[in-house]
């Protein structure tokens, strides 16, 4: 098979990763279609987050291949992978605790002139771009309904808002594809629904591809075209939500039969 089949944006080939004796990820192969919303589910400890760490370069020691838009990502540092247009969020939000919501959400913007220490002392050089980034950030924060918190440190916002802020942080870099690790965990049900609606909107309007780990299957299944099911490091099932729910193995894995 050729590396970049046009409609496949992410391809994993036989990816494995062990921690000591534990095979956290065991021979995973999968594909994610461009512009789709794809789910990744599985019981606790099945290796989902580890898989995201591998794809995003946070975990660089593994076997197998990760191919994004026809480019092999193996061994690339996370910042290089982000530059290629592949962003991610973390299961436990990783925010910049000493910075305000606005500052957090502006960090991820790409190619900021003022990030160079040689240019930073000359605001005239970067202020026009700064204002563009600020405007874009403001719009994004408004969509996520956290714009009014712009001046607050992350310690003063709710857990759900932290999840939203993390999303804003990564969206600032205009990623082509996003890996979201449990975007609605710890979030109020109404808000969980809203988060998925804005994901869907982002997907439709900007063509962003989403690959989402989620434990709230009811919400997830309403918004995804395809789901992969992991269990003990392996993909045990894949398909449309309607097919997945009928799957014997999936029910077993979840209910621990």
């Amino acid at each position: 098979m050729p590396l970049d089949q046009n409609d496949i944006t992410l391809r994993l080939e036989n990816v494995s990763k062990s921690f000591g004796g534990i095979k956290a990820v065991n021979g995973v192969s999968l594909t994610v279609r461009r512009g789709s919303i794809t789910g990744l589910i599985g019981p606790n400890g099945s290796g989902k987050s580890t898989l995201f760490n591998i794809i995003s370069g946070v975990e660089r020691k593994f076997s197998g291949n990760v191919v994004f838009d026809g480019k092999r990502l193996n061994g690339l540092a996370p910042h290089k992978i982000f530059d290629l247009g592949l962003g991610r969020t973390f299961q436990t939000p990783r925010l910049f605790t000493g910075m305000t919501v606005l500052e957090n959400a502006m960090v991820g913007a790409k190619n900021q002139r003022g990030e160079s220490p040689l240019r930073a002392p000359f605001p005239k050089d970067w202020e026009p771009q700064e204002m563009e980034v600020a405007k874009k950030t403001q719009d994004q924060l408004k969509v996520l309904e956290i714009a009014q918190l712009y001046d607050k440190p992350p310690s003063e916002i709710s857990g759900g808002q932290m999840k939203l802020l993390q999303l804003a942080n990564v969206l600032a870099g205009d990623p082509k594809m996003l890996l979201l690790d449990e975007p609605t965990a710890g979030v109020a049900p109404r808000l969980a629904q809203d988060i998925f609606l804005s994901i869907e909107k982002q997907c439709k309007e900007k063509g962003t591809t989403f690959f989402i780990i989620e434990h709230r299957l009811q919400v997830l299944f309403k918004h995804v075209q395809k789901v992969y099911v992991m269990h003990e490091g392996r993909i045990i099932s894949e398909g449309a939500p309607s097919e997945i729910v009928k799957h014997r193995e999936v029910i077993d894995a979840y209910l621990g039969a």
Partner: peptide, 19 residues
């Protein structure tokens, strides 16, 4: 923006790398 960059790596290197 350089100040933001510095603070971001101070507060969370992994998050900053991932951005």
């Amino acid at each position: 923006p350089y100040g933001r960059l510095l603070k971001s790596i101070r507060d969370d290197k992994v998050a900053a790398e991932s951005l």
